[in-house]
């Protein structure tokens, strides 16, 4: 009886720690996205201050390539859109995982109690 529960407990614990790993992975991805968001926002602000008298270059590899102001604005805008979308996706993903780990925790505590009970019974015999 106790052995069976212990096996279950072990499996559940493994699942839980795997979930925890996924959570921290998603957290760091989200953090990276947030950094990119701030960076791109700063660039957007700068580009908004420019007019047609300014020439814009984009660094591609080691080469500076001349680019249109509107084109650059569009690129940064698209990037911002993409990043906010990704951020929202991670937000829901993290919420989901939070819920799941909550459930796992509950299962774990009840399993632990069962295990202790079963151990007590075994000793009682």
């Amino acid at each position: 009886m106790a052995d069976a529960i212990q096996k279950k407990l072990k499996a559940e614990l493994e699942k839980y720690s795997q979930l925890q790993k996924d959570v921290s992975k998603s957290m760091s991805s989200r953090q990276k996205l947030e950094t990119q968001l701030t960076e791109n926002n700063i660039v957007k602000e700068e580009l908004d201050l420019l007019d047609s008298s300014n020439t814009i270059y984009k660094l591609i590899g080691p080469v500076l390539v001349k680019q249109d102001l509107d084109e650059a604005k569009a690129t940064v805008g698209k990037r911002l859109e993409y990043i906010t979308g990704e951020l929202q996706r991670y937000e829901t993903l993290l919420k989901d995982m939070e819920k799941k780990s909550e459930q796992h925790r509950e299962v774990l505590t009840s399993l632990q109690q069962d295990f202790q009970k079963a151990q007590g019974l075994a000793k009682g015999k």
């Binding site: 791109n40 700063i42 660039v43 700068e46 300014n54 020439t55 270059y57």
Partner: peptide, 12 residues
């Protein structure tokens, strides 16, 4: 030529 970030350089 000023680096404004994310690979963009602007002549000011």
């Amino acid at each position: 030529l000023v680096d404004v970030g994310t690979g963009y350089y602007v002549e000011k």
